[in-house]
Design a protein around this nucleic acid. Structure first.
Length: 426
RNA sequence: GGAUGGGUGGCCGAGUGGUCGAAGGCGGUAGUCUUGAAAACUACUGUACGUUGACGCGUACCCUGGGUUCGAAUCCCAGCCCAUCCGCCA
């Protein structure tokens, strides 16, 4: 969420930004309402001040008659105040509705464009897409061959989009988790395993909308709880309402959670196998930082993602996300797209990680602040998130890139200590 | 799930319906003293919003939301959370 005052003072730039991002938002209306709201706020405060004065004077009233008279005056002032307040609250609701729809401002260097076609490739990984001189299998076929994933049983117990990992796929999942977590610990992250459920307010804080008609979020009936779509939600929520000391920043946390997504509206783009599923595990990076640190941390997060996939031996490219393809909270976003030989005709790039600088956009909603010693007041933190490893998609990339002619799969060297084997199905 | 006791400022902890943004302590900052440090002493020490050129002033906030009242940290109702005990359980 952007600051109201900022929107009013930079109405033109905000409107321009909404246009670039393809988000309709009635900025002039918001500016008008905010002006009215401020007037009403002042009115209400003034009325309340006078009512307080009257209340205080009642104790010192000389006669009963005078006391009664002042009581009546106080009552009338409070009623007027309540009325002004009610109007003010109505305006505030209306303002909030517009305000919530306004996306974050955008990094000036982000490529401009309507959708992901305008995303700009900015770098490649160390490894080139492999050339196979045999018929390539996709991960679904490979999984079937080695009895690694049971999609049918998953569908039977929870519907399409759910699956059982089996046998070496289980080891692979656990190995990827440990590999990622250990790497992040070496980079100064505090590891956590987060709740898989969170309150609606926490989801709102990070910019996720539960319970709407097109929500991506599963909610628990008769409660305020929702299954999280990513640990970004819980990690961001960790500091909701907190004020951190500037000296402890940046605070870097990495979390393991299950991720649940309804993938509503994705039916047309439904993808084979593990690519788009309702549940998967993810190791997520998160940082709370000072404003002046966030741009550099975004680069660090991107570098960590690159290192993780380089060391897994997986070919990838990095794209700088175009304005029209950025999510609401992101100021700038990089995606890693891994080469998936079994995808499409002869292989395609498929998104495996994503890292965003959300500046103070999430922090404002979360009310996550910092304080600098010796300075008056508090300011909003910057938040950043990045995927370390989304296990299901990483599994696709590992299996498909490392397959051999006989259908066996070579385990990446960095995973062997955790897997305890070099070959799957060999 | 049942019973009981609780939720007050960075922390601990008081608080008869008006003079309470809230005693006292701890912590923190600055100063006095000291060669330096400690101790002692003195002063200051919440946040947000609004307003002002500025000093400042105003409003709100004692878990949350309602209610009673001219006036609520204090009374009433509902909810949430926490602690302890019992039951159940990986």
């Amino acid at each position: 969420m952007l600051d109201r005052k900022f929107i009013v003072e930079n109405a033109e730039a905000v409107a321009k930004n909404c246009e670039l991002r393809g988000v309709p938002a009635d900025i002039p209306r918001l500016v008008e309402l905010e002006g009215q709201r401020r007037q009403l706020l002042q009115q209400a405060e003034e009325l309340n001040r006078r009512a307080n004065e009257v209340s205080k004077s009642i104790g010192q009233a000389d006669s009963d008659e005078e006391r009664e008279q002042r009581k009546a005056e106080g009552r009338s002032l409070r009623e007027q105040k309540d009325e002004a307040q009610k109007q003010r609250d109505q305006l505030a609701d209306e303002i909030l509705e517009i305000q919530s729809g306004i996306p974050n401002m955008t990094h000036p260097a982000a490529p401009v464009g309507e959708d992901d076609k305008s995303n700009l490739e900015v770098r490649r990984g160390k490894h080139e897409p492999p050339r196979f001189d045999f018929t390539v299998l996709d991960h679904v076929e490979l999984a079937e061959k080695h009895d690694l994933i049971d999609f049918e049983a998953g569908a039977r117990i929870a519907g399409a989009g759910f699956y059982f990992l089996k046998n070496d796929a289980v080891l692979l999942e656990l190995a990827l988790q440990q590999y990622a977590i250990n790497h992040l610990i070496r980079h100064g992250f505090t590891p956590v395993i987060t709740p898989d459920l969170a309150y609606s307010e926490i989801l709102h804080g990070t910019g996720y909308i539960p319970r709407g008609p097109e929500t991506q979020i599963y909610s628990i009936e008769n409660s305020n709880l929702n299954l999280v779509a990513t640990a970004e939600i819980t990690l961001g929520g960790m500091m909701a309402g907190e004020t951190l000391d500037s000296e402890e920043l940046p605070l870097k946390i990495c979390g393991i959670s299950h991720c649940f997504r309804t993938e509503a509206g994705a039916a047309g783009r439904a993808t084979r196998g593990l690519f788009r599923v309702h549940q998967f595990t993810k190791v997520e990076m998160f940082a709370f930082s000072l404003p002046e640190q966030s741009e550099e941390i975004l680069e660090q997060f991107c570098q960590i993602e690159c290192d993780l996939f380089d060391d897994l031996g997986i070919p990838f490219r990095v794209v700088d996300t175009a304005t029209g393809d950025l999510g609401g909270p992101a100021y700038r976003k990089y995606d890693l797209e891994a080469w998936m030989p079994g995808r499409g005709e002869g292989g395609e790039w498929g998104e495996v990680t994503s890292t965003s600088n959300c500046t103070d956009y999430q922090a404002r909603r979360l009310n996550a602040r910092y304080k600098t010693k010796g300075e008056k007041g508090t300011k909003f933190l910057h938040t950043l998130n990045g995927t370390a490893v989304a296990i299901s998609r990483a599994i696709i990339a590992v299996m498909e890139n490392n397959q051999r002619e006989d259908g066996s799969i070579v385990v990446p060297e960095v995973l062997r200590p955790y897997m305890g084997k070099e070959i799957i199905g060999g």
